[in-house]
Computed example of a mutant assay.
Amino acid sequence: MKDRELIELEGFPPLSLSVRHFSLMNSLLTVFNSTEPGDPENTIAQFFLEHFENLDQLNVYDVAEECYTSRSGIRRFCQSIGFDNFSALKACAWEWRTHQKFFIDYTNHSSFKAHLSNEIGRMIASVNEQISDEDLDSLAQLIHDAGKVILLASDFSSMAVREFQQSMLFMHKIPQILTDSFGSEKSLESMGPSDLIIVISASGNYARAAQNQLSRSAACRVLITTNRDHGLRDFFDAVLQLSPENHYGERTVYAKYGITYVFDLVYNHYFEKFGKR
């Protein structure tokens, strides 16, 4: 089955998006969290978030009236977060159903505490089996030798990499973070053969969305994922596989806890190789 067909079956549109516009939900949350209450952008972002479930049914006249602005004001807001117009923003209504399923399926277990504990244990064992000490040493070496390091992740995976960024400061190495709502895309264009891009994409969706931009970079490319698609493996110079199973199209402990665990391991190996000096 082709990648495009698989994505559509899982509830995703064809991924022609850039890393910056990977998720409307993340973009709206970023505006909502970074602006003052009463600010026009805050008001519009909050309205879209509160009505996300029925986004495709919204009328621009009603939105403008509810947000105390004009149609041109709504259009400018849409353009400020990467969409050509209100219609293009409405086309992302599919996100509600997809993410709702992810979060509900993840927690919908009769004994969630026992289920989660068991899944985290299985995840740790799986990561330890899939990623060897040699793999971790190699990645630590790549990070050390790279002139510039970019950590490329969706907002859903960004907490782990932000903590890793802070910890690397004490190793005198400062990776740059780029997510769908944080950082500058222009940084990718300036990457050369001596630089390193680490893409964190548990399901593989974000990696696919980033491929077009990454293909224009001469930097070494490393992927951390659970997706076992051969197309992704062929595109990247190295792949750290978190699981022997393909977890495409679902929210798992690999995305929530596995990424943090892997970067803890990477940091430890970096410290052992270079920090003690």
Rank of each mutant, 00 (worst) to 15 (best):
1 M>I: 12
4 R>K: 12
8 E>M: 15
11 G>T: 15
12 F>Y: 02
13 P>K: 13
14 P>C: 05
17 L>W: 00
19 V>Y: 00
19 V>Q: 00
20 R>A: 01
22 F>Q: 10
23 S>F: 04
24 L>M: 08
24 L>C: 01
25 M>N: 05
27 S>N: 13
31 V>T: 06
31 V>A: 03
34 S>N: 14
36 E>L: 11
37 P>V: 08
37 P>L: 06
41 E>T: 06
44 I>C: 02
46 Q>P: 07
48 F>S: 02
49 L>F: 06
53 E>C: 01
56 D>C: 09
61 Y>E: 13
63 V>Q: 05
66 E>H: 11
72 S>Q: 11
72 S>M: 15
73 G>R: 11
73 G>H: 09
74 I>F: 09
76 R>H: 15
76 R>E: 05
79 Q>A: 14
82 G>N: 13
83 F>V: 03
85 N>W: 06
87 S>Q: 07
90 K>V: 07
91 A>K: 11
93 A>H: 15
96 W>P: 12
101 K>L: 15
103 F>S: 15
106 Y>I: 12
107 T>G: 05
108 N>E: 08
109 H>P: 09
110 S>Q: 12
110 S>W: 00
121 G>Y: 08
122 R>S: 12
124 I>Q: 07
124 I>T: 06
124 I>R: 04
125 A>G: 11
125 A>P: 10
126 S>I: 10
127 V>M: 06
128 N>D: 11
129 E>S: 11
131 I>M: 08
132 S>E: 01
132 S>F: 10
134 E>T: 13
137 D>H: 11
139 L>F: 14
140 A>M: 13
141 Q>L: 15
142 L>T: 08
142 L>Q: 08
143 I>Y: 09
144 H>T: 06
150 I>N: 01
151 L>T: 10
155 D>Q: 08
156 F>C: 08
160 A>H: 10
161 V>K: 01
165 Q>I: 11
170 F>Y: 14
171 M>S: 14
172 H>I: 05
177 I>S: 00
177 I>A: 02
180 D>R: 08
185 E>H: 02
186 K>H: 06
188 L>Y: 01
193 P>L: 08
193 P>N: 01
198 I>G: 04
199 V>I: 00
200 I>S: 07
200 I>E: 05
200 I>V: 14
201 S>E: 03
204 G>I: 10
210 A>T: 00
213 Q>P: 05
214 L>A: 01
215 S>C: 09
216 R>V: 09
216 R>H: 10
218 A>Q: 10
221 R>D: 03
222 V>T: 06
223 L>D: 07
225 T>G: 07
226 T>W: 13
228 R>N: 04
231 G>A: 00
231 G>L: 04
234 D>Y: 03
235 F>C: 00
235 F>T: 01
240 L>N: 02
241 Q>M: 03
247 H>L: 15
248 Y>D: 01
249 G>K: 09
250 E>H: 10
250 E>K: 12
252 T>V: 07
252 T>E: 01
255 A>M: 13
255 A>F: 12
256 K>L: 13
257 Y>M: 13
259 I>G: 03
259 I>E: 00
260 T>M: 02
262 V>N: 02
263 F>L: 14
263 F>H: 09
264 D>K: 06
267 Y>I: 04
268 N>L: 04
268 N>P: 06
272 E>Y: 14
274 F>L: 02
275 G>R: 00
276 K>T: 12
276 K>R: 12
